[in-house]
């Protein structure tokens, strides 16, 4: 059993929307046709997107924290959108767990979008079919690309490496490890959808420095072994010789 997924580190995401634009750029140029936009430069523009970055404020001013929250299809292990599809256009791939839509079978009834609690699906108003994140399925298996680039466009675009990509069912994969060690969680666990995408929570990063850590207590090469120890305001050999 393989389940490809994204792990999104909310501790690192800076909310730059690079994943949003790179997703749109890659997928609108794909073989499945463009992700249509309407009135892009006019009043009331609208368009199809697979990925969005939202911003939330936690707490009450002045004690607030800003969380940037990227949201795309979570490729659930129990996807509620798949069984409701009347045509079988919506399906979950057995080989890697990616939830996809067959655009040639979709009748555009929107029932799957009602059945997704996360609002991850969008109807393309031009092609009149349901669209969603494909985990860049046309990219991750493309052997003409260098191996390092066989990742979803959003993962490659992220300047802070807040997005990790891998097999969450393989316990030894880096994504599984980071989910385990950094408290990775799923969205809306109350519906039993078992999302494959995980999020890593904000983490408090604090450093406590004790006074003795400011001077070298360990001195493995026996340097500066002068007795008595120089005072804090005196020059040591390091200060003179450090050129």
């Amino acid at each position: 059993m393989k389940q490809l997924a994204l792990v999104i580190d909310l501790n690192v995401c800076v909310g730059c929307h690079a994943c949003v634009t790179s997703c749109k750029e890659w997928n609108t140029s794909g073989t499945a046709g463009s992700m249509s936009d309407f009135n892009p430069y006019e009043e009331d523009p609208t368009g199809t997107f697979f990925n969005r970055v939202q911003t939330f404020e936690i707490g009450e001013y002045p004690n607030t924290e800003t969380v940037h929250f990227p949201k795309s299809c979570l490729h659930c292990e129990e996807p509620p959108c798949v069984p409701v599809c009347p045509t079988g256009a919506s399906y979950k791939r057995k080989e890697d767990g990616i939830v996809l839509v067959d655009y040639d079978k979709c009748i555009g009834c929107k029932y799957c979008s009602w059945a997704c609690p996360y609002g991850a699906r969008e109807l393309d108003e031009e092609q009149k079919v349901m669209k969603k994140c494909t985990l860049c399925v046309d990219r991750i298996y493309d052997e003409t690309l260098p191996e390092a680039e066989r990742k979803p466009a959003c993962v490659l675009a992220c300047p802070t490496s807040a997005r990790l990509f891998g097999d969450v069912k393989d316990p030894d994969s880096p994504v599984s490890e980071t989910i385990r060690e950094n408290g990775g969680y799923q969205l809306m666990p109350e519906w039993g959808t078992k999302p494959a995408n995980h999020y890593l929570p904000r983490r408090k990063i604090k450093m406590t420095i004790h006074k003795d850590e400011l001077t070298r207590v360990d001195n493995p090469l026996n340097k500066e072994r002068q007795l008595p120890m120089p005072g804090d305001d005196e020059q040591t050999l390091d200060d003179i010789m450090s050129w």
Partner: peptide, 11 residues
């Protein structure tokens, strides 16, 4: 919520 990620409408 401070931003839903876009200003225009969507599906």
């Amino acid at each position: 919520q401070k931003s839903r990620g876009f200003m225009a409408g969507s599906f």
